[in-house]
Amino acid sequence: MKQRSTFLFSVLAFGLAFLYVPIFSMIFFSFNKSRLATVWGGFSTQWYGKLFSNSQVIDAAVLSIKIALLSATMATILGTMAGLALARFRQFRGRALMSGLVTAPLIMPEVITGISSLLLFIMMAEWLGWPGQRGFTTITIAHITFSMTYVTVIVQSRLAAMDMSIEEAAMDLGSKPWQVLRDVTLPIISPAVLSGWLLAFTISLDDVVITSFTTGPGYTTLPMLIWSKVKLGVTPDINALASVIVTVVAVGVAISAVILARADKRRERDIQMAIAANK
């Protein structure tokens, strides 16, 4: 029963407008000539020029991307292992604690994660003499910790949905455990692992609260830089920076959506053909 309801569609239109009007407004005012960010003073691209020549912004962006690449990769490795452990090992000592540890960071408010990570680093410095200075390493460790559990959740649900007899079939055909993992399990869950990596990368790139607790002098990530500027009010150069980020993300998401949609369509066509051929 697919019927149109004016009410439903007007709420949908309102909701989408609600989601996008602020973003478009922000992009619009990034081309504002005036220094006053919210009053239109004519068209100009000067803020973009200033943005790309601002070494502070570039350095912060490079640091953020470095941290995000490293932490997403580590989080994917550890998170995938945890997902495999929880989905495929029926019993091991401390399984209940582990499944708790995997879900807890998802509901833990960032302030608490941030403070507790900072306290750990302070205590470690006190007792072990490490880390002497907080910065790149401590931020990365904190990011790995809270983003790996997202990877675990994704990988675990993919494994739960996977037909276990496929792994049994590989073993039945003579594969040793590690060969089953290499030839069958990992290739099949690889889309889930990839989306886990992307999610971990995004959360790391976006995080400001946990970073602000675990950072040290000289290590300012892009969100921290934005945070310190935003606290002082709205400025056109932040509008420009925001527009660049939004555009990059939108283009990336759109491209991957098109690729996914194509693959889906091809698959559907294949299935149709297979059914038709059988008749």
Partner: peptide, 12 residues
């Protein structure tokens, strides 16, 4: 060797 009920073909 075994032929599985779900066939368990390697999808990739």
């Amino acid at each position: 060797n075994m032929m599985f009920q779900s066939y368990a073909l390697f999808p990739h």
